[in-house]
Amino acid sequence: MTHLLEVRDLVTKFYTEQGVVNAVNGISYTLDEGESIAIVGESGSGKSVGVLSIMGLIPSPPGRVDSGEALFNGRNLIGLSHDELRHIRGREMAMVFQDPMTSLNPVLTVGYQLTEALKLHLGMDDNQAKKRAAEMLELVGIPNPVKRLDDYPHQFSGGQRQRVMIAMALSCNPSLLIADEPTTALDVTIQAQIVELVKQLQEKLGMAIIWITHDLALVAGMVDKVAVMYAGYIVEQAPVHDLYKRPLHPYTLGLLHSMPKLDAKEQTRLASIDGLPPDLRQNFNYCPFAPRCPYAIDKCKQENPALMAAGPNRVSACWRWEDLREETGFGVNA
């Protein structure tokens, strides 16, 4: 079976003056048509570099995709020329970033920016493109869409700019939408609006989604599966229900326990994860989470666990995943 996207053993490094940063250390995942995956992890864990690598957007130098494949509709994106990638980006796959101002040009009207892409990728003429652009703004819930085409990005609120970005990303009907922390800079209320919008759009348009976030709570209700990243590795991947019910990696478990429960009357002390994430300028010949892991055993300090099958459709990079499964009362919601 061919997948819409199949990422295999992707390795991306930054060759900086301070040393080689091992940003992405061999990540693999697949995504089918219309499927959604969340990539979760704290800052610096390699989430953005992972997707920028498949889109050919790694600044080089200092960055380089050293090995691995990203098969999109069966075609390997790694190593494609800039022109080929530009054609795929924006048309077949599109991206929404955390800060819309970095991808919206402040001196051009929103209408201009929306119609350019339509003309470039879909060969529409002025009128067709304008009509479609207004439809897209309407689709993402911007009032007075025709009038607002003449406005500049700064005339929109933060939440509206993110909507404009989504409109732009979806205007050419891509089969894959990559959203890199698109709501992190927004208020919870606006975040909820955007999440709801993307869910509706996915139902309507059927695109596959990669949603990157540091917030495990945010994606619980919106994706099919979750990959948790730590220190440039995917350390656990599972269907969404399984992951929250029974995490099989101590880092996932730690993240879930360090979040206060909204509905719990009696709050128990937050279980914090001690220590700090590691410096990525090293080769891990031990489990990268070992220095912070309450479950670490000697083996963890001697050998870096590869991902192991840990049940149907799920993998964990932990020597002790079976012990975690056995431990009673372990599940966060169990």
Binding site: A217, A220, L262, D263
Partner: peptide, 14 residues
Amino acid sequence: ALLSAIPIPDPEKE
């Protein structure tokens, strides 16, 4: 409305 916007880390509840 604020309370309703808080994401809950539990797919079933969500």
